[in-house]
């Protein structure tokens, strides 16, 4: 692994477990799950001290509709190596600190996931819409039923059940 990732590993605090894998090119990818969302800022500060850069942030919706938690993955670059810290938050009413005091480029990433998911970012310097129009309510992907699901899956299944019932084929 590169010196920057090694330097970060030297700054690990109790409870931060990083699993690393190095490919045949010598490029290392590290993964860490932060059980406490409050650990995000100190974790990111340690990455910055080690010379890291925020690459991007991935927020996502759990596939299981009954899931109690949701996750945000923060991807950091350390001179070519990549470190991903995943933060677990409650599915409803999730809140997380802004990384903008440490990494300026967190700004757009955080604005983007705020408009798509039900996640509030604390202390964001400019929490305006990024892509979705201001007239649309937030948490678009958490609230809305996709048009494709509505017209393809739902209606097609109902239609086929009716056809099968009429032809006497139960399958």
């Amino acid at each position: 692994m590169k010196a920057e990732l090694g330097s970060f590993i030297g700054r690990l605090q109790p409870g931060w477990i990083v699993e690393c894998a190095t490919d045949r090119y010598g490029v290392t990818v590290g993964w860490c799950v932060l059980e406490a969302a409050g650990d995000l800022l100190p974790f990111a500060a340690a990455v910055k001290e080690a010379g890291g850069r925020l690459s991007t942030i991935t927020a996502y919706q759990p596939k299981d509709p009954d899931a109690a938690v949701r996750e945000i993955a923060y991807h950091f670059d350390l001179d070519g190596d990549t470190l991903t810290a995943t933060v677990r938050l409650p599915r409803r009413g999730a809140e997380i600190d802004s990384l903008t005091p440490l990494f300026r480029n967190a700004d757009w990433n955080e604005r983007e996931f705020m408009e798509l998911y039900d996640i509030r970012v604390r202390n964001h310097p400019d929490p305006r819409r990024l892509f979705v129009d201001a007239t649309v309510d937030p948490a678009v992907l958490d609230r809305l039923i996709p048009f494709s699901a509505m017209v393809n899956s739902a209606s097609t299944k109902t239609l086929w059940e009716r056809i099968m019932a009429k032809t006497g084929d139960e399958q």
Partner: peptide, 15 residues
């Protein structure tokens, strides 16, 4: 994909 995310180079360059 359960999740597929990509970040393009222009994303930061705009700012």
């Amino acid at each position: 994909p359960e999740r597929l995310k990509w970040r393009v180079p222009s994303y930061m360059n705009w700012d």
